[in-house]
């Protein structure tokens, strides 16, 4: 078998505020191989986001080792971490985190600026990425002119514009109604089919059932790790949703606002 893309060995994370120490992660061992689709589940405060942040090179473990594509992340300088976040990882957040003053196309372009891509090429690739998430016709709209589902798809376009090998999505459907959420899952499944490794945090078993593997975290430890037996395919779920009774996603109001 190929080498793991992500390998964590005894990863711990302790948050210290004054004299109080919070053990967010208490020794995580995890391997994720290229092309996997992993759902991370667990109760609130169990350390899912902390784990995602470490995997996404936004944060460093307090103890233990993290290898990304064979490289030990704790050996990387801050600029190298930024480079990894730019080229290898795409983030999707629960609250979308789009830049409110910019059009969808400009939002999607931003990672390419840090990759040193010229303006014309940037624009072209941003439009391609928006096409890919089905928003080619909304490229020049600002986030406040888009529905929640559309905003999250812009965020996905931004995450994949630099063709990363991993997409990290922390509760991407948390602020969306079920249909918009299903559409986001369809998109993630499609990207996964195209070879992108996906890690997804969710509270909802229905969403986790779209993944190929479910890892359960409790109290900073992995308590379960099993393959998905009855995998849901978002395209089929969408097809079974009542077509007439449902609004088209375009017309749906945002389920959650853009952060202030």
């Amino acid at each position: 078998m190929t080498a793991p893309l992500i390998r964590l060995e005894g990863v711990e994370k302790v948050y210290r505020s004054g004299s109080i120490a919070v053990h967010a992660l208490r020794g995580i061992d995890l391997e994720v191989y290229p092309g996997e689709f992993v759902a991370i589940m667990g109760p609130s405060g169990s350390g899912k986001s902390t784990l995602m942040n470490i995997i996404g090179c936004l944060d460093r473990p307090t103890a233990g080792a993290y290898y990304l594509a064979g490289r030990r992340v704790s050996d990387l300088t801050e600029d190298e971490l930024a480079y990894v976040r730019n080229r290898q990882i795409g983030f999707v957040f629960q609250t979308f985190n789009l830049l409110p003053r910019m059009t969808a196309a400009r939002n999607v372009e931003q990672p390419l600026i840090y990759a040193g891509v010229g303006p014309a090429e940037r624009r072209r690739r941003a439009l391609v990425a928006l096409e890919r998430v089905g928003l080619g016709d909304r490229a020049h709209h600002k986030p406040n002119e888009l529905s929640g589902g559309q905003r999250q798809r812009v965020a996905i376009a931004r995450a994949l514009v630099n063709e990363p090998s991993i997409i990290l999505a922390d509760e991407p459907t948390g602020n969306l109604d079920s249909r918009s959420g299903e559409e986001i899952m369809a998109l993630l499944q499609q990207l996964n089919d195209e070879g992108v490794t996906i890690l997804l945090v969710t509270h909802e078993p229905d969403i986790a059932a779209h993944a190929r593997r479910v890892v359960t975290v409790r109290d900073g430890r992995i308590t379960g790790d099993r393959p998905v037996t009855e995998r849901l395919l978002a395209r089929e779920v969408l097809a079974n949703m009542a077509p007439g009774g449902e609004l088209r996603w375009e017309d749906r109001p945002a389920a959650g606002g853009e952060p202030a």
């Binding site: 996404g56 936004l58 801050e78 600029d79 930024a82 480079y83 976040r85 730019n86 080229r87 983030f91 985190n97 830049l99 931003q110 990672p111 840090y114 990759a115 931004r158 630099n162 952060p259």
Partner: peptide, 15 residues
Amino acid sequence: REIGVRKAIGARRSD
């Protein structure tokens, strides 16, 4: 928040 997002998508300190 914007600064956090920019760092997440690959902005270095110098950027």
